[in-house]
């Protein structure tokens, strides 16, 4: 049923595929939200980053940045961003880093070793970039917070949370990659 045929030129097909992946990221965020710890219901994550990471593997780093930009633009248009416009900018910075790392490591060879290496180092880069990003973004919303309090919060709550989120993203993207390995969309 799922025969993947390719007759069109690469540039146009890649761009269209990236556009669809951006829409898919936006949709999946609403369909697949689930709590990280079943007891704490407000701390949720979702599979919205999976299409984007898949795109980073097969389309390369710059398409990944494009997908994140378009996804955040869709959020901006829908008015449904829980962090406001600053949240969107922070998300763009962090996920772009994730995508660029994954994209560059898997650029030459898309074998299992490189994909695992790319996703793991991308997830670590993502969690690390969130620290300076939050250092800039959080005081815009909480001017009363002192720098020491903020840094303590970032290292004790934010960093572990983002590492966990990156680990979940890595695991699921890997599962998706393994299931769809035979259908390289861009060969």
């Amino acid at each position: 049923m799922f025969e993947v045929t390719k007759y069109s030129t690469t540039n146009l097909r890649k761009t269209i595929f990236a556009g669809i992946l951006a829409a898919l990221s936006f949709i999946l965020m609403r369909f697949t939200e689930f709590p990280i710890f079943p007891s704490v219901s407000f701390l949720t994550t979702d599979l919205g980053d999976i299409p984007f990471l898949y795109g980073a593997i097969y389309l390369g780093p710059w398409y990944a940045v494009g997908i994140v930009f378009v996804k955040n633009l869709l959020f901006f248009l829908s008015g449904g961003s829980p962090g406001g416009i600053i949240g969107l900018i922070a998300n763009f910075i962090a996920l772009s880093t994730f995508g660029i790392v994954v994209g560059f490591i898997t650029l030459k060879r898309k074998n299992l070793k490189n994909v695992i290496l790319g996703l793991v180092s991308g997830a670590i880069a993502f969690a690390l970039v969130m620290i300076p990003t939050n250092l800039w973004a959080v005081p815009l919303y909480l001017p009363g917070i002192t720098r020491e309090e903020l840094i303590t919060y970032l290292y004790t709550v934010n960093l572990p949370f983002n590492l966990l989120k990156g680990a979940i993203d890595t695991g699921i993207t890997l599962a998706v990659y393994l299931s769809l390995r035979k259908h390289n969309p861009m060969k």
């Binding site: 993947v4 390719k6 595929f17 999946l28 299409p51 699921i172 998706v176």
Partner: peptide
């Protein structure tokens, strides 16, 4: 959620092409 994500991705290839 994999049984939702996989068909969506596969359909996305075909639609793009």
């Amino acid at each position: 959620f994999l049984p939702i994500v996989l068909p969506l991705l596969l359909n996305a290839f075909n639609r793009a092409d």
